[in-house]
Design a protein around this nucleic acid. Structure first.
Lengths: 199, 199
DNA sequence: CTTTTTTCTGAACAAATGTTCAGTTAACCT
DNA sequence: AGGTTAACTGAACATTTGTTCAGAAAAAAG
């Protein structure tokens, strides 16, 4: 059965996705026009509407895709640890995973943190829920560490946000090919995180 | 002597400043129109151009003003310490100052961190220089602590950025009237920072 | 090949954008 | 009061915005 005109795929075309990702990250959602995206893809603006119902969905799908990838990747990483791994090892796993994962997708990360206010209210709620469950994953580790006496943390909720904020900071300055390798950066941050939650 | 038509003051009118601050913080620079700002002030759009040469200057002046206030306030705070204050006390002073200062201007902080990419290139360079000298202030404290053996930090540059990123995280969740007072929040963060740079 | 289906063009739409400016209103000064 | 200066209006400007859609082009299917 033919797609009626004006309808669109449920999955955004990869070329369009990539162009939107790059442009949104560079100039911001509001500052990028559909015509700019189209030009990057090598197509007229109208053609985009075969792949997305509107500009807003383009943004939302980028964010949702990113957050779901993040959650899925962490679940893989988490379950790859040996059973009975203690909280300290789990926290190191999280720190290294977080930095590594985010550094591989700087544009998506940037968008996910900067463009929340350009989401419609319903889309905002959806994305926030995904973000929350990622934060919960870290908080669970911290709580376990507190319970087992490995960590001393006055407030696990604040500590969760503080750690994530600290780790996200790496995005603002790290450029591959710099003074430090990604693994060295991971180690420096892990050193600070470990001490900050320590007894 | 009369101002010729179309010229503008060197200082942006406070009403306009405040309206732009609030709107830029809420919706983002690119998403706010001059007409929206005018409406908030209770005036027609054209009247704004008696106070600013263009929209870009409005943004730049907000950011520059904020950064200069920040630097000035820190200099006051820094020099208010007793002479010979050790690095640990200086760091605590910085942490509490940073949180307290930023929490009093959430909108300006938000703009200063989110709208860098909407600055023209020359304005961007100016603002970045101001930000750098603020970071240098913290790094100086960390270096002193390393030299005197109070801190153990593998890389003071990274630690500087990590601490600031961590502290800035408070902006994303703290709302006055919440579970914790501002001073309690300061203490929680200070606890984490202190440990993270500790020996 | 022809027919069917999918994809894209190119023009058009109404609305919104930053900015200018002649002319009106308000404020101030003597 | 009148006269001078400052502030604001309201309309206009050229561009750009997101989005639609009839029809052309291309691709797939027969």
């Amino acid at each position: 059965m033919a797609r009626t005109q004006g309808s669109h795929s449920d999955i955004t075309g990869p070329r369009i996705r990539d162009a939107a990702l790059r442009l949104f990250a560079q100039h911001g959602y509001a500052a990028v026009s559909m015509r700019q995206i189209a030009k990057e893809v090598g197509v007229q603006a109208g053609a985009l509407y075969n792949y997305t119902p509107d500009k807003q969905s383009l943004l939302h799908r980028l964010m949702e895709g990113h957050m779901r990838e993040l959650l899925a990747a962490w679940q893989v990483q988490e379950s790859s640890g040996e059973a009975g791994e203690d909280a300290m090892a789990q926290l190191e796993r999280f720190v290294r995973f977080h930095i590594s994962f985010h550094m591989q997708r700087p544009d998506a990360v940037f968008i996910a943190y900067m463009e929340l206010r350009n989401l419609s209210e319903e889309n905002f709620i959806l994305i926030e829920a995904l973000r929350s469950s990622y934060e919960d994953a870290l908080e669970a580790v911290l709580k376990r560490g507190v319970d087992t006496g490995r960590f001393r943390i006055p407030d696990t909720k604040i500590a969760t946000l503080a750690v994530i904020a600290m780790l996200n900071g790496v995005m603002t300055w790290y450029r591959s090919g710099g003074r430090l390798s990604l693994e060295e950066v991971e180690s420096v941050y892990w050193d600070m995180v470990r001490k900050s939650v320590g007894v």
